[in-house]
Amino acid sequence: MSKRSHHHLTELGCIACEDLTEFGAGKEGWLAPDAGTTVLCALDAHSLAIANRSVVLIIGWSDSDEPRVKIRPELSPIEAERITAIEWLVFDDIKVIAIGTSRGFLLMYSLRGDLIHRQMVYHGQIIKLRVRGTKKDLMQDISSEDVCVVMPGVIARFDGSDIRSMLQRWFQETHSRFWDEKSNKDLEDDGNSDNRLPYQIWNVNKYGSCVDAAITGIMPPPLMELQSSQRYYCAVTIGDDAVISAFRCGR
């Protein structure tokens, strides 16, 4: 008889707070996937973001005294718009929360709850937000990241360097406004600017609608194809029938 192993669990933090009652905490099955108030979660090294259909709550799970932030995005009541995906975006010392909606909008908020960016990606529900990071090596000075927006039959890719530049510019301008003692109205309007981020979008519904997807990296060109500067990305999708498919997506 094999020896039974004992696994010891170490408590890393606690997120118990009254704000969780808005998400159904305390009710039986409130975290179940088929619950009436399905909860979305995104975890990073120090914080936990929890979202329901209309509210995002940011909790510092490693420090119970860290202030909690509630974000209530402006959603269209006519279209019954709701929050359908959340994810952390981290670029060195910059950290923001990204939100996807059922109408295909991508929103980015600061940890103070300020709207930084709002952009329509595609007409349809955003299912997932995926982030891919590449570690620094001797041949590269900076790391590169992809932010992938997954929708039924469609996948979009944002280059991390474009998002990083936009965030750095926003935080620098916000810092300057703070010292210039400008009104808060200017800060709110800045988040609704028309500065669209460039992105690539591909149709991946050849084998049916997908329920999840991710860009796994850069692919080399085919063996008999002439070398060019064009980049090809590998996208892996999971269909609603559990079939896994891989696509080569050109830039």
Rank of each mutant, 00 (worst) to 15 (best):
K70C: 10
R157M: 14
D114E: 11
D137Y: 08
S2A: 09
D92I: 08
E22R: 14
L187Y: 05
R112E: 13
L89R: 02
M139K: 13
A213V: 03
R112Q: 13
K70L: 15
C14S: 13
S64Q: 12
S228V: 06
I71N: 04
M108Q: 11
Y232D: 10
G124E: 02
S62L: 08
F158K: 00
R68W: 03
E181L: 10
M139Q: 13
P33V: 10
D194I: 12
R53Q: 14
P67Q: 08
E181R: 14
V96E: 02
R72W: 09
P221S: 09
W61P: 05
G133S: 10
R177K: 12
I116E: 00
R169K: 14
L187D: 09
H8A: 07
I50F: 02
V56Y: 00
R53H: 09
E225S: 09
F158M: 10
E181T: 06
N192C: 08
R72I: 10
A16M: 06
D141I: 01
I218S: 11
Y233H: 14
E28A: 12
S176L: 15
D92L: 08
G239M: 03
R248E: 07
S193K: 08
H6A: 05
V147T: 05
N195Q: 12
I244Y: 05
R231E: 05
T37I: 12
R68Y: 07
I94E: 06
V131G: 00
F247R: 02
D63V: 05
T84F: 02
A45R: 05
D93L: 09
G133N: 12
S245V: 11
P33Q: 08
K135W: 07
H8I: 14
K95E: 09
R177P: 00
A80S: 15
H117W: 00
A25P: 02
D19A: 15
V147C: 11
S54N: 12
D63T: 11
N203C: 13
A246I: 07
D241T: 15
L48T: 13
I244R: 10
V154H: 08
L129D: 00
H46Y: 06
V236P: 00
V121E: 00
T237L: 03
L167Q: 03
R130C: 10
L187G: 01
H7A: 12
C17M: 06
P198A: 11
G208Y: 05
V204H: 01
L226H: 13
W170G: 01
L106C: 01
K206E: 13
N195Y: 10
H6T: 14
S54F: 06
F178R: 12
I99T: 02
